[in-house]
Design a protein around this nucleic acid. Structure first.
Lengths: 339, 339
DNA sequence: AAAGTTTTCGGTAACGTTTTCGGTAACGTT
DNA sequence: AACGTTACCGAAAACGTTACCGAAAACTTT
């Protein structure tokens, strides 16, 4: 495990370390033949420049940190793939960490990344209630950060988000057009703006088509199957049965699906279902789940692009919010409604 | 973005940088009060030791690289969570990269991690055929590496694997006990040892119960839904219909499920199904899929432990293979067979 | 042939730490 | 009073690289 350094190469060739460095950095002030020779011998010796030393003097790590709430569901992994796609090609290394939806570990991750001197970060906030101070301070110091999906409008940073409002509207509209009238919304944690926007879209559609509803129609669940299931079971027990549910994501929709099937009711005939953020599961559950698909890879790619722009702009780049569009995948869970 | 260094702190307090360093490293030869004062002022100034410089002199990065084929399915993410669990607690940082099942990018990732001077790596090989030379050389140089899941017996390294043979046997046995006789096996790429072991387990069970079968019963698919679906469709078209399928993983089983349902046949009555490596989807598909669950988190944890042992043992630690156990989750796709 | 330019290279100072070694007080010991 | 110990601290050398500043050598120009 003994490392070969630039000095060893220099000594071997009877040149100075500056020259070896030049050969490797392809500078102009070196003769072609010397360069070729150095590279050849260095390769034979198995020399590879020590990136730590290089980072120390260049004050850049070429590392980017990514913090996501989880990566067990396919959403975040897909975004990460998009991020890596553009970053790896630009010579950056991507450090992925997960907060497990917990604010404390989120902050711990951020600090770890800071300590590891990443050149910038791409963050999706945990669902736990949180305090923005740390982020605001970092941004004020000029630290390049881009948020996505889970953002907070109070943090003055660039972000890439999905048009939750619009697509929540379309999802609800779709249910209405299928003939549903008593449409409930299983919402995510409402301190997240994405949840609030989806609620807004839901309301807008209900209002527009003059469908009566009360605040009780909006039920705050979490983001997981069990929570959707619990919420639905409660509704069924209470006898307050809707004829459709627009869920904040696929897992909660699938949870509801489980409860409905267990109760012996039919989907979509008794209750229609629409999910959100198209997951791998949507196509394979029975009946297949209608869902709004987000351009996950694209989200990752643009987040990375935004970050690079911020890193490369010496002055302060004005925060910029990119909103991306999706599409509604209609499947059996909401269509062919026979009434 | 100007960083505060140890010098700034030293100047501010009129002490030497050595003293500040001592304060931060909790050395014995410093007065308690000085230490407290330094830490307090340093904190006020927002000083944090530069880890790059520290790494340079200590010749350790406290970084661990993880390379997996993909993380869109939940298997690898869960393993990674296990890995992070033990590594983060020990002060290590985890760098995750994915090879996209491609040998070339796998190697590119490995080299990038090497360049970034990780103290060790945890690797799961891509499914593409590969050449071991690079790994063997690294191991000979004493580089700490642990493999998991996708291993290669020809690489003399520590690894943690699942007892594929045993559980493939149990899965097949389960189908036999349900009354199935014409049991096909959808196998993964056969150059991966895990695929070969699952085939062995399948054969063993068929032999033991004296069920006749031919090599045609073993069909090499890949690891994705589409591949399972294609394989099943082919069987149905050819009219060569089995009464059960033991698939190498859940996606291929679910692919088969799609094809079977589309053909109007019943699961498990016409064809029973068993998957492998329990995924999130197993519980939500219809009918719920019988599958073998692997202790994913535990696999990650032990891989990390093995790696740490290797890093901390100065001499050469003998390669060690840990085999973990799982369990069979019986669900409707294979049970209640009515014949 | 002298002077000016360009090419090519070497020496050395950074980068921000930790670590080794040595030095100065203060204190007790004889 | 001289000496040894201990507790604390500072100076300087590492770690491996790149950046900067010159200087020698080669080549042009006058």
């Amino acid at each position: 495990m003994k490392h070969i350094t630039i000095k060893d190469v220099a000594r071997q060739l009877n040149v100075s370390i500056s020259t070896v460095s030049r050969a490797f950095n392809d500078k102009y002030d070196i003769r072609k033949e010397t360069r070729a020779k150095i590279l050849r011998v260095a390769d034979e010796m198995g020399y590879r420049p020590n990136p730590i030393a290089r980072k120390l003097i260049q004050q850049k790590t070429l590392n980017i940190g990514v913090v996501v709430p989880e990566f067990v569901n396919s959403y975040f992994p897909e975004v990460i793939i998009g991020i890596q796609e553009v970053l790896l090609n630009r010579g950056y290394q991507v450090l992925v960490m997960q907060s497990n939806e917990c604010y404390t570990t989120e902050l711990k991750n951020i600090k770890a990344l800071e300590d590891s001197m990443v050149d910038g970060m791409i963050i999706s906030l945990s669902s736990e209630a949180h305090n923005n101070d740390y982020y605001v301070r970092m941004i004020e110091k000029g630290y390049p950060i881009v948020f996505f999906n889970r953002v907070d409008e109070n943090i003055p940073a660039s972000s890439v988000i999905f048009d939750d409002y619009k697509w929540a509207y379309f999802a609800t509209e779709h249910l209405i057009k299928q003939g549903c009238r008593k449409i409930y919304h299983f919402s995510g944690y409402q301190h997240l703006s994405l949840s609030r926007n989806r609620i807004k879209g839901y309301r807008k559609a209900m209002d527009k088509f003059c469908i009566p509803y009360t605040d009780d129609y909006i039920i705050e669940t979490g983001f997981f199957i069990e929570e959707g299931q619990k919420a639905m079971e409660k509704l069924l027990v209470e006898g307050d049965v809707p004829d459709a549910i627009f869920a904040t994501n696929d897992p909660t929709a699938i949870g509801a699906m489980k409860a409905i099937k267990k109760a012996g009711m039919k989907i979509p005939d008794d209750i229609a279902l629409v999910g959100f953020s198209e997951s791998k599961m949507a196509e394979v559950v029975d009946p297949p789940l209608t869902s709004v698909s987000q351009p996950t890879f694209e989200i990752g790619r643009t987040a990375a692009e935004l970050l690079l722009r911020q890193i490369n702009s010496e002055g302060f780049a004005a925060p910029q919010t990119v909103t991306l569009d999706g599409k509604l995948n209609v499947r059996e869970s909401s269509s062919a409604k026979s009434r």
